[in-house]
Amino acid sequence: MGNELNLDKARKQARRAKNRRKRDREKARKASKKKWDIPLKWEWVLIVSMISLIGYKVTVNT
């Protein structure tokens, strides 16, 4: 009988954890829907910096 109570308790804890993760995901999704929220990606930073460097070298040498 003690094992059955532990299984119920474990199920409740797992359900609570699952619901907490779901609420956190929903909260993060709602928070990320800002109009001007643009994520900074390193690929774009690298591309823009390389284009800027090339443009600088071209204009300085002319």
Rank of each mutant, 00 (worst) to 15 (best):
M1G: 13
G2C: 01
E4R: 07
E4H: 02
E4V: 09
E4L: 14
L5P: 04
N6K: 13
D8T: 15
D8I: 15
D8E: 15
D8A: 15
D8M: 15
K9G: 10
K9S: 13
K9P: 02
K9V: 14
K9I: 14
A10G: 04
A10M: 00
R11I: 10
K12S: 11
A14R: 07
A14N: 02
A14M: 05
A14T: 08
R16A: 14
R16I: 12
R16V: 12
A17F: 09
A17R: 07
A17K: 11
A17Q: 11
K18W: 03
K18Y: 09
N19L: 15
N19W: 14
N19K: 15
R21F: 04
R21Q: 09
R21H: 00
R21N: 08
K22M: 04
K22Y: 00
K22I: 05
R23D: 12
R25K: 07
K27T: 11
K27M: 09
A28H: 07
R29G: 00
R29I: 02
K30C: 07
K30A: 00
A31H: 04
A31L: 02
A31K: 06
A31Q: 09
A31D: 00
S32M: 07
K33R: 13
K33N: 13
K34Q: 05
K34D: 05
K35P: 03
D37G: 08
I38H: 05
I38M: 01
I38Q: 08
P39F: 05
P39I: 09
P39M: 13
P39D: 10
P39W: 08
L40I: 05
L40G: 04
W42R: 01
W42H: 02
E43N: 06
E43Y: 11
W44C: 12
W44N: 15
V45G: 03
V45Y: 00
V45R: 05
L46P: 03
L46Y: 06
L46H: 09
I47H: 02
S49T: 02
S49W: 06
S49F: 05
M50T: 07
S52I: 05
L53F: 10
I54T: 03
I54H: 01
I54N: 08
G55S: 02
G55R: 03
Y56G: 05
Y56P: 03
Y56T: 05
K57Q: 15
K57L: 15
V58S: 01
V58Q: 08
T59S: 01
V60L: 09
V60G: 02
N61C: 07
N61W: 14
